[in-house]
Design a protein around this nucleic acid. Structure first.
Length: 272
DNA sequence: TTGTGTTTTATTGCCTCC
DNA sequence: GGAGGCAATAAAACACAA
């Protein structure tokens, strides 16, 4: 926009603003009566003034003025009802608030723009906090996953140590295989997956050789599967997830302390 | 008081719809 | 082609710190 443009363009809007065709539109500085601050007043303070041609005959056009709080209030009320203006409503509202219909239209236009900006900002904030919340949740699930994997490794090592120590004295049935730590690890997690656990559903990622990505969701690198399925475990009371490890840990500890059934049986039962 | 940043009012140009 | 909407922008009005 050039700075010397007209304050008001009669060619576009006719003489709706001023009641005559006096060529007074020369730009803001030449027509705004800056030398007469005492005569300053708000643009149109009453409906009568809006249509009072004599007023504009005797008073030079003024600078643009802020609308009064009452005018703004009325406009906002109307905006809340409907943010677009039909011609009839525009005319009625203009009379009601004491503005030119064009001013009302401009106000609505600007208000829609401001509303849109604020709405976008709110949506952005909402999405941002939602994203940060999910990120934090994902992080804690990832840590929990690491913890559980470490627990599996620890238990496996304990089981292996116990088996090696008791191999010579214990009589293990011939058809019960002695599992290697890797096999035991895989079997334990296999049971975890197939036993109705909510941690990994049947359609989700299945066991792979690496043993370190069973719980990862390929669609969300670094993230787990749906959080809801995790929460559902507690809800349905099945408890096949972490509680499995707790049972395993208890059984291993019992074995280490010479209680309960032989660990060979536990390994056998896992395998069947 | 003044400089500066923000808000509000108004204009312009372009686009879509009827 | 005219009416109306929107984005971009100008410029006045306003807020406020220094």
């Amino acid at each position: 926009m050039d700075s010397g443009r007209l304050f008001f363009d009669p060619s576009r809007y006719g003489n709706m603003f001023f009641g005559n065709s006096d060529p007074i539109f020369r730009g803001p500085r030449s027509v705004m009566g800056l030398q007469e601050p005492l005569k300053r007043r708000t643009f149109f303070t009453s409906p009568d003034e809006v249509f009072d041609e004599e007023y504009y005959d005797e008073q030079l056009p003024e600078k643009k003025r802020r609308l009064t709080p009452e005018q703004v209030h009325l406009l906002e009320q109307s905006f809340e009802e409907e943010n677009k203006l039909e011609p009839e409503r525009k005319t009625q509202l203009a009379k009601k608030v004491g503005l030119q219909p064009r001013q009302v239209a401009v106000w609505f236009q600007n208000h829609r723009a401001r509303w849109k900006t604020k709405h976008l900002e709110r949506e952005y904030d909402c999405l941002k906090s939602s994203y940060e919340s999910l990120l934090s949740e994902c992080d804690s699930i990832h840590k929990e996953n690491e913890k559980l994997k470490a627990e599996v490794v620890s238990l496996t090592e304990k089981v292996q140590a116990k088996e090696v120590a008791g191999a010579k004295s214990d009589s293990v049935p011939e058809d019960v295989p002695i599992l290697s730590p890797l096999q035991l690890n895989v079997k334990a997690e296999d049971r975890l997956c197939s036993g109705g656990s909510a941690v990994v559903d049947e359609d989700g990622p299945q066991l792979m050789d690496s043993g370190d990505s069973y719980f990862l969701n390929d669609n969300y690198p670094g993230c787990m599967g749906p959080v809801d399925s995790l929460q559902s475990e507690e809800d349905d009371g099945s408890g096949d997830g972490q509680s499995f490890f707790s049972c395993a840990l208890a059984a291993a500890e019992q074995q280490l302390h010479g209680e309960g059934e032989p660990l060979g049986w536990w390994v056998w039962s896992l395998n069947n």
